[in-house]
Computed example of a mutant assay.
Amino acid sequence: MNLLHGFDGLPEFLAVAKRSSVSKAAYDLGKTPGAISHALRRLEQRLGVTLFHRTTRKVALTEAGMQLLLKIEPAAQIIAAGLEDAAQSSKAPSGTLRLIVERLALPHVIEPLLPAFRSAWPNLNVEITVSNRHESFSAEGYDAGIQIGSYIAQDMIAVRLSKPFQWAVFGSPAYFSAHGKPMTTRDLEKHECIRFRRPEKGDVYRWEFIEDGATVRLDPVGAITVNDGELMRSLAVRGLGLIYSSTFHTSRELAANTLEPALLECSPGTDGLFLYFSKTAKNQPKLRAFIDTCNKALSLD
């Protein structure tokens, strides 16, 4: 059977199966009911089976029709998505790119990247919402978000925007000089820890480590609890206690030697900042333009 000829009548079949009506299918496809009925009869003759039970009031799938629908509908959806992708690829980026961005990404991603993006796409508008609460991503219509990878929902597509970083304990040189560095997670019981209450969840963040091949989660003990990362790091620099953070969050303090890491060997793994978006948004020209700019402007070597 010729491949193209084999597709004859399938759009009409799918439309009638979806709407259970020849007239409604004709409206959807922009054809006359007679053209729809003719296409279905030709398809049934070619296949040698009856696909629909027809009455004056109702059109319903036969068993053979249902079996055909189950087999071809997923493929039809893939074909439709492919055609939409091809159509989108020919369009120039336009409109407004709406991003929700974790505050941490501002100095490391947004500020260095935005000039290059605006230079490359001067007719494309950008709206940036700075927030660490991303639960409303879909409901509020953002095109993409920037967040730490471990916080991103699994059904999203993610593109790395930073080098991998490690989670560990950090303290000032003065604090470690006065109190010593913890060598094991059990040593943390003897230290003053600055606790972090997550604004998006309201809970106190547990410190996570890998020790002797097992995951260890600790509720830090300390007199100070904050809900702001910058304040937490500032207090640690002043020697008020130890904090649990990442080599990325503390990169400026590490470069200035105002904080030092401890228990890096117990880090639960590498993480990073990622641009994330839904599968349905991946082929938007404005989003592709932003991803291309990210790939060109951000060196992850």
Rank of each mutant, 00 (worst) to 15 (best):
V22Y: 01
S23K: 12
S23C: 04
K24Q: 13
K24R: 14
K24D: 14
A25M: 07
A25F: 08
A26P: 09
A26M: 10
Y27K: 13
Y27D: 13
Y27W: 06
L29M: 11
L29T: 03
G30C: 03
G30D: 01
T32E: 12
P33R: 09
P33C: 10
P33K: 09
A35N: 05
A35R: 14
I36Y: 12
I36S: 09
I36R: 02
S37D: 09
H38V: 06
A39I: 09
A39V: 06
A39T: 01
L40M: 15
R41E: 13
R42A: 15
E44C: 03
E44P: 02
Q45H: 11
G48M: 08
G48H: 08
G48D: 05
G48T: 04
V49Y: 03
L51E: 05
L51M: 10
L51R: 01
L51F: 11
R54M: 08
T56Y: 06
K58S: 14
K58R: 14
V59D: 02
A60D: 11
A60P: 00
L61S: 04
E63M: 05
A64H: 04
G65K: 07
M66H: 13
I72F: 07
E73R: 15
E73Q: 15
P74F: 06
A75C: 04
A76P: 03
Q77S: 11
Q77F: 08
I78M: 12
I79D: 03
A80D: 07
A81D: 02
A81S: 08
A81F: 02
L83F: 09
D85L: 05
A86G: 04
A87C: 07
A87M: 12
Q88G: 00
Q88T: 00
Q88C: 04
S89A: 15
S89K: 12
K91T: 10
A92V: 11
S94M: 08
S94F: 06
S94N: 10
G95D: 06
T96S: 13
T96D: 12
L97N: 10
R98E: 10
R98N: 12
I100Q: 09
I100W: 00
I100C: 06
V101N: 04
E102N: 08
L104N: 01
L104C: 00
A105S: 02
P107C: 05
H108W: 07
V109H: 03
V109K: 00
E111S: 10
L113H: 09
L113T: 01
L114F: 03
P115V: 12
A116E: 02
F117P: 01
R118F: 09
R118W: 08
W121R: 06
W121V: 00
P122K: 11
P122I: 10
P122H: 11
N123W: 03
N123T: 13
V126A: 04
V130C: 06
V130F: 07
V130W: 05
S131D: 15
S131T: 15
N132V: 04
N132M: 08
R133T: 12
E135N: 14
S136P: 01
S136F: 10
F137D: 09
F137S: 12
S138R: 15
A139V: 13
E140V: 04
E140F: 13
E140L: 15
Y142D: 06
Y142R: 07
Y142V: 07
Y142M: 07
D143A: 10
A144G: 04
I146Q: 05
Q147S: 08
Q147Y: 08
G149V: 00
G149Q: 10
G149H: 10
S150N: 13
